[in-house]
C-alpha cells in the first residue's frame, strides 16, 4: 500500500474512548515555566501527534504522561493527568507500575549494551511477566514481531543490540517497549535520527501499533504528523494552542499561530 496516502484514506473520525485526560497541567523547571495550563484528551487506539517549534514544551508534556520528569530533580508538576480515570500524580501511584502501563520510545535509539534477546526480555523480566524461559521466549518473539524486527534478527538473538543499524535499533527499542504490554506508547521524535527508509519502516509500524495501543508521538516534522496521526496537538511557548483532528489542523487551523507554523513562518 502507498503509505503516504494511507493515513488519510484510513483516517478514523469516529469518537473513541478517552485514554488519557490532562487538566490544568503546569510544569516548572526551576524558575522556568515550561508548560502552561494544558488540557488535553488523548483517545485509545489512536495516534496523537504533538507538534510545535523546538522548545515549545511538547517533549516535556510527553514526559509528564509517564512521570519521566520525576527523574529530573528540578522539575515540578501541577494539575492532574488521568489515565483510565486515575490520577497518575496521586500519592498512591508507583511510577514504576505506571511506566509498565505507559511505555516510552526515545529520540535516539538507546538499546542496552546487551544481546537483542536480553534487551527485549528486560522489561518482562523485571515486571515478573514470565513464569519460565519458554514463556519469556514467547513474549520476546511476539514483541519482536510487533516491532517488525523478528524476521531480521531471529537468527542472531544473542548478538549485541548496539550492533544493529540505526533503524533496526529504534525498532528494537519499540519492541522492547511493547514487550511489557503497555496500554499507551509514548514516542519522543522516534525518527529524528533515522534515514528516510528507516523512517518509513518505523512510521508504518506506528500505524500498525495503533490497533492495540494509544500512541502519542512527538515530532518536529509536520509531514510525519500528517502521515501517521489522527489527532494533532500544536504547542507553542508552553501553551497548547490547538488540538483537533489532524486533517483539520493541517487544512483549516483555527489559530493564527498554528497557521503560521504550518505554513513555515514560525518554527
Amino acid at each position: 500500500m502507498d503509505m503516504y496516502d494511507a493515513p488519510h484514506t484510513e483516517r478514523d473520525v469516529e469518537q473513541k474512548e478517552v485514554k488519557i485526560s490532562a487538566r490544568g497541567v503546569q510544569v516548572y523547571y526551576g524558575e522556568t515555566h515550561a508548560i502552561k495550563d494544558v488540557d488535553v484528551d488523548i483517545e485509545d487506539n489512536t495516534v496523537t501527534a504533538f507538534i510545535g517549534p523546538s522548545g515549545c514544551g511538547k517533549s516535556t508534556f510527553l514526559r509528564c504522561l509517564n512521570r519521566m520528569n520525576d527523574t529530573i530533580d528540578i522539575a515540578r508538576i501541577e494539575g492532574e493527568i488521568l489515565i483510565d480515570g486515575e490520577n497518575i500524580y496521586d500519592k498512591r501511584v508507583d511510577p514504576v507500575q505506571l511506566r509498565a502501563k505507559v511505555g516510552m520510545v526515545f529520540q535516539k535509539a538507546n538499546p542496552f549494551p546487551k544481546s537483542i534477546y536480553d534487551n527485549v526480555a528486560y522489561g518482562p523480566k523485571i515486571h515478573g511477566m514470565a513464569k519460565n524461559k519458554a514463556e519469556l521466549d514467547e513474549i520476546v518473539e511476539k514483541a519482536l514481531r510487533r516491532g517488525a524486527l523478528w524476521d531480521e534478527v531471529k537468527d542472531r538473538l544473542d548478538a549485541s543490540g548496539t550492533g544493529l543499524s540505526g533503524g533496526q535499533q529504534q525498532r528494537l527499542c519499540i519492541a522492547r517497549a511493547v514487550a511489557t504490554e503497555p496500554e499507551v506508547l509514548l514516542m519522543d521524535e522516534p525518527c529524528s535520527a533515522l534515514d528516510p527508509i528507516a523512517t518509513a519502516q518505523v512510521e508504518e509500524l506506528i500505524d500498525e501499533l495503533k490497533a492495540n495501543y494509544s500512541v502519542v508521538i512527538v515530532t518536529h516534522s509536520m509531514q510525519q504528523a500528517a502521515r501517521v496521526s489522527q489527532k494533532t496537538a500544536f504547542f507553542h511557548l508552553g501553551n497548547l494552542v490547538e488540538f483537533d483532528e489532524t486533517g483539520t489542523i493541517f487544512t483549516n487551523p483555527r489559530d493564527k499561530r498554528t497557521e503560521s507554523y504550518i505554513t513555515g513562518r514560525i518554527g
Binding site: V96, F106, K108, Y122, I126
Partner: peptide, 19 residues
C-alpha cells in the same frame, strides 16, 4: 539515555543500576 530507556520501561532505580 541508558537510564531513560530503563526507567521508561518501568524499571526501578536499583534494577536500572544492577542490570
Amino acid at each position: 539515555a541508558m537510564r531513560d530507556g530503563s526507567y521508561g520501561l518501568g524499571a526501578t532505580q536499583s534494577e536500572t543500576i544492577r542490570q
